[in-house]
């Protein structure tokens, strides 16, 4: 079928499409390799013996494999990276639950309920999509400082329960609007409350978008650097990202092996999510066209 379709245009010899696709594939494989090379090099750098790192080393294959750098990096600061990983995990999970719950409730109101002032609030919500967070940063900091929340996780978690990230609301409104209205109407006839419609009808039908939101939320919270940087001062409460930054400061750039080892570990959760939920991530980007 394919060959016939390709051969159809007049003047095309059958060999041309083959040559063409060989050329395209070699170019794409070349670019893929170039794109991945730094990442692969970081992974290989993390398992090299310390003296193997320099001296014009460009090969991806280490002369010998050792996990020494992982050990040095893990215990490279006064608190081990195990604590940082647990902190990151806890903050990311709590933030994700907050984002999904608050955004779905809000999106339900905007997409399925009628109330006075709806379009006004909706316009304001859309307005905050583009607002740089810097503009709320300082008063928020002052607020959390006065509440004695600085140096705790609370400023990183609690705001998510108030749907501060409009992206997730937007994502879910798009999806909820696609669900058939007849479902709500039938349920309303049967005397279902709005809450039951949300909980029993809309949410179960929206698992794909809830999963997409959860995945993005987890990744962004995991990768967040700025929030933890300003709010977490005590090393016991550090996230992985801040831990990495401290590792640079403490070891300088002398111990690339340890830095690479901890960097690789910090990427593993995101990489696993990418492996298992790639389709959801790509659909999420393609449908909303937002962010990473």
């Amino acid at each position: 079928m394919n060959d016939a379709a390709h051969a159809a245009p007049p003047g095309d010899t059958p060999e041309r499409p083959i040559l063409h696709s060989v050329l395209i594939h070699s170019a794409l494989i070349g670019v893929s390799f170039l794109m991945l090379y730094p990442l692969l090099w970081m992974v290989s750098g993390s398992v090299r013996p310390a003296d193997d790192m320099f001296g014009g080393q460009t090969s991806l294959i280490p002369s010998q494999v050792t996990l020494q750098a992982y050990k040095t990096g893990w215990f490279g600061l006064q608190v081990s990276f195990g604590t940082f990983f647990l902190n990151s995990l806890a903050i990311s999970v709590l933030a994700t639950i907050g984002n999904v719950m608050a955004a779905s409730v809000t999106a339900f109101a905007f997409s399925r309920l009628e109330f006075f002032g709806k379009s006004f609030w909706f316009a304001l919500m859309l307005g905050t999509l583009m607002l740089p967070y810097h503009v709320t940063l300082i008063p928020q900091y002052v607020l959390f400082l006065k509440m004695d929340w600085v140096n705790t996780w609370l400023p990183l978690v609690v705001p998510k329960y108030f749907a501060v990230d409009a992206f997730f609301i937007f994502l879910m409104v798009q999806f909820f609007r696609g669900l058939p209205r007849e479902l709500d109407e039938a349920a309303m006839m049967d005397g279902c409350s709005a809450w039951r419609i949300y909980w029993k009808i809309v949410l179960p039908l929206s698992l794909p978008v809830l999963a997409t939101a959860a995945i993005f939320s987890f990744i962004w919270t995991w990768e967040d650097f700025f929030g933890p940087l300003i709010y977490l001062g005590d090393i016991h409460s550090y996230t992985v990202q801040i831990g990495l930054r401290s590792l640079i400061d403490s070891s300088g750039t002398s111990d690339w092996g340890a830095l690479f080892a901890m960097s690789v570990l910090s990427l593993i959760p995101i990489f696993l999510i990418f492996l298992f939920f790639q389709r959801l991530l790509i659909e999420g980007i393609a449908t909303t066209g937002m962010k990473r």
């Binding site: 809000t106 919500m125 905050t128 008063p139 809450w195």
Partner: peptide, 21 residues
């Protein structure tokens, strides 16, 4: 019902976005 569902966002919007801005 509308404002019940909107409440978390509304509090966040007024208290954490509009107010601070």
């Amino acid at each position: 019902a509308g404002y019940m569902f909107l409440a978390p966002w509304l509090i966040g919007f007024l208290g954490l976005t509009l107010g601070p801005a």
